[in-house]
Design a binder for these strands. Structure first.
Lengths: 163, 163
DNA sequence: TTTCCTTGGGAACGCCGATGCGCATGGAAG
DNA sequence: CTTCCATGCGCATCGGCGTTCCCAAGGAAA
């Protein structure tokens, strides 16, 4: 299949991405209808978006709470070093911990911000003791717990303009 | 369709959710093969998981960078009040801002943590000036920028045990 | 043991998605 | 202006997928 990797993205592509972001398992024909395209044209656009890296894949939205995970923790971790090897060791260790679903090195002091899922406070305490506490090079750990999640724009809406 | 809403979740259900989380558009037949079930049994399980709230929906993973959004900001906002009405006003205002993709009220001081996507620093500066700065009741705003995202366990792996 | 309930497998049918083809549009070259 | 090529759409096709029946097997309760 001959296929370029264009940066060009018109509003139809944006609409397709929005639609897929809202319901990735919707039939292509339904998406095509929404965006005013034929099925085949829509399929080809989706393929192009996948090939060009605008569309990375598809995932399921899981009901954390329903699955027994009631704790979301946002954890700030400060390291005592800025040496790249130490950062790499820390990052490798973090990547092994079950429950850590996000981790980012952020500006403003040499620290990391994690998002952690846990069943309950006991579960989180165990995680903290067995894993977070043993991470290499850590100076401070600061845990906050999500009390309430505020509904916001979806990712797609943020990227392509509000609803 | 007669359908109970069981809390029971065996490892087959977990495997299905993992698989769907990894690739939500995979054919049911492929998932069925992975988890060792026939197509029809797998379809029924998926329907049950959807009906029971374990599976909330399906989404697309978008290439932020490729789409021109190179800034991810993690913003801490402190309010000068703890009155519920003030929190509600703040939350309603936040929900209107394009670019805010997550917002949570967290423990430890009365503050919120947001995740914000922006095209570049100029774009973020505009967002900060035009929107964040005008949020009601705000005392302090503290922005950190993601310098590097560390790959972690996926959500499903965190919930059901590492790979 | 009998009955009921649950859950899996098999088959059929309708629908979905990928692909090839023809055509229209628009810009560049002659 | 005309020609040519590139791009992108719609239509039609066909193989494959998903949904939904029905039946069978296994376990629990009476």
């Amino acid at each position: 299949m001959k296929m370029r990797y264009p940066c060009r993205m018109d509003r139809i592509d944006a609409a397709i991405l929005k639609s897929l972001a809202a319901d990735a398992r919707a039939p292509v024909s339904a998406i095509a209808g929404e965006v005013g395209l034929s099925q085949s044209a829509c399929t080809r656009r989706i393929q192009a978006l996948e090939a060009s890296g605008h569309l990375l894949g598809y995932g399921a939205r899981l009901g954390h709470r329903r699955l027994g995970f009631r704790i979301t923790a946002l954890v700030d971790i400060t390291l005592g070093t800025q040496v790249e090897e130490d950062l790499a060791r820390f990052e490798a260790a973090v990547a092994q911990i079950d429950g850590v679903v996000e981790c980012a090195l952020v500006s403003g002091g040499q620290d990391y911000r994690l998002k952690i899922l846990a069943r309950d406070l006991d579960d989180y305490e165990r995680l903290h003791r067995e894993h977070l506490g043993r991470l290499p090079g850590v100076v401070t750990i600061n845990s906050s717990f999500v009390l309430r999640a505020i509904p916001t724009r979806s990712e797609a809406e943020a990227l392509f303009g509000g609803r």
